[in-house]
Design a protein around this nucleic acid. Structure first.
Lengths: 218, 218
DNA sequence: GTCTATACAATGATAGAC
DNA sequence: GTCTATCATTGTATAGAC
C-alpha cells in the first residue's frame, strides 16, 4: 500500500495467499475427485470450485496427477500417525484392538470423502491414475493388528494355537467391511456397538483353551 | 454369391457375425475398462481391440454406458447363479460355508478382470459412471451366508448366543479380504488352505458351548 | 503468485453410403 | 449390420503480462 519502491514490498500477503490457494485447491480436488473420479475430473471444474485459475493449480502442484498424490499422501500420513498412537496404547489385546477399530472408525467418519477417493484409487485402474502405494497403509495396519495379537498371545490372552497372521486376517476383514459400510452410499453405516460385539465374537473363538481361562464357565 | 435377386439373400452370415461382433466388443470392453477404467477408456480403443468399428458398437449397445452395464449385468447373473447353487448344498453349516467360499474363490479366479471392473465401479464415483446396483450382489451374498448360519443354529451346530447377522458380517469380511487379495496387483493371492483355516478360526468361536460339543476336549 | 488467452490433441457420438 | 468421414466439445497444459 504505502511502499515506495516497487517490487521491494516484503509483504506477508503473498505467502499467506499462497497457502490459502493451496488448501483451497486441495479441498476442491477431494470434492471433485470424490464425485466424478480422478479421470473424469477436469482441472477446469476444480479451479472453478476452488475459486482460483488454472495456472495457479499448475504453479502449486505441477499436474493433475500430483494434485491427487498430494491428497492421498497427506491422508496416509494422518492415518498412519493415528494408527501408531493406537498401537502404543496399554491394556489387554482385546481392549487395544477395540480402541484401534474405534479410532479408525472415527477417523474415517471425519474424512469420508478422502477415504472414498482413496478406495476409488485403490480399486481403480492401473493406467490413467498415478501410481500410489496403498499397500503401505494396508501393510502398516496389518502389522499393527498382528503386533497387538502377538503381544496378546505372549500375555496369555490369546490362544497360540491360531497363527497371529490368521487372526489378523479376520480382524482386517471386519475393519474392511465396516469401512465399506461407512463410506459407500448404498449402505447405512454400522454402529460402534455392533463393531464391539463382532470383535467380541471373534475373540471368543481366539481365546486360550476354555479350561485355562478360569472365568469362562458360567 | 449365386443369388439372383439382390437383397433377398436369407444368409445366416449376418446373425452369426452379429453375435461374434457383440461378444468381441464385450471382451474388449472388459479388457480396457480393467486397464484404463471406465472414464478413461475410449470407445476408439475398445473397437480397435475388438477389431470392429465405432458404429458397430453404437449399433449393439447404444452407448458406452450400456456397454459397461451389460458387462456387469452378465457377471452379476453368473455369480448369483453360482451362489444359489452353493446355498442349496447339503452338509453342516461349516461345510456349506467352506464350499461357498471356495466356489466364490474359484469364480473370481476365472473372471479376475471382470471382478476388478466390478470393484472399480463399486468404489468409483457416483457421477460419470452409469448407476449399477451392486448392493444387489452384496445383499444376496449376505443373505446366503446368513441363511446357512441360521440353519446351522437351528441344527445346533452354531451357538444361538451370537446373532446370525454378526456372524455373517465376519464371514463377509473374510470373503472380502480374500477377494481383494485375489484381484489386486499389489498382493499375492491367499491360498484355499489358508481360507479354510481362517473359517475354522471363526467357527471355533461360534460353536456351541464347548461342553455340549462332545468331540471338543482332547 | 496469479492472471488472460490460447495451443492442440482426443473425446463420444452421428450421418449417410453400402 | 457394418463401414468412411466428420462434428462439436472438452481435455491438459503453457506463454507471457502483471
Amino acid at each position: 500500500m504505502g511502499t515506495i519502491e516497487p517490487g521491494a514490498t516484503a509483504d506477508v500477503a503473498p505467502a499467506e495467499t499462497d497457502e490459502r490457494t493451496r488448501s483451497r485447491l486441495l479441498r476442491a480436488a477431494v470434492c471433485i475427485f470424490d464425485r466424478k473420479g480422478y479421470a473424469a475430473a477436469s482441472v477446469r471444474e476444480i479451479v472453478e470450485i476452488a475459486g482460483v485459475t488454472k495456472p495457479a493449480l499448475y504453479y502449486h502442484f505441477g499436474s493433475k496427477e500430483r494434485l491427487l498424490t498430494t491428497v492421498l499422501d497427506e491422508a496416509c500420513r494422518e492415518f498412519t500417525a493415528a494408527m501408531e498412537r493406537a498401537v502404543a496404547r496399554k491394556g489387554t489385546a482385546r481392549q487395544r484392538l477395540e480402541a484401534l477399530c474405534e479410532d479408525l472408525h472415527g477417523l474415517f467418519q471425519e474424512h469420508v470423502p478422502v477415504v472414498r477417493v482413496a478406495h476409488a484409487t485403490f480399486f481403480g485402474p492401473v493406467e490413467g491414475a498415478p501410481p500410489f502405494d496403498f499397500t503401505l497403509f494396508d501393510r502398516r495396519l496389518e502389522a499393527a493388528v498382528r503386533r497387538i495379537v502377538e503381544e496378546g498371545q505372549a500375555a496369555g490372552e490369546i490362544a497360540t494355537a491360531a497363527s497371529a497372521a490368521d487372526v489378523s486376517l479376520v480382524i482386517m476383514g471386519v475393519i474392511g467391511v465396516f469401512a465399506v459400510r461407512q463410506i459407500h452410499y448404498s449402505f447405512e453405516p454400522i454402529g460402534l456397538d455392533t463393531m464391539r460385539r463382532v470383535i467380541g465374537l471373534i475373540f471368543d473363538g481366539v481365546l486360550r483353551e476354555q479350561g485355562q481361562q478360569g472365568e469362562r464357565r458360567q
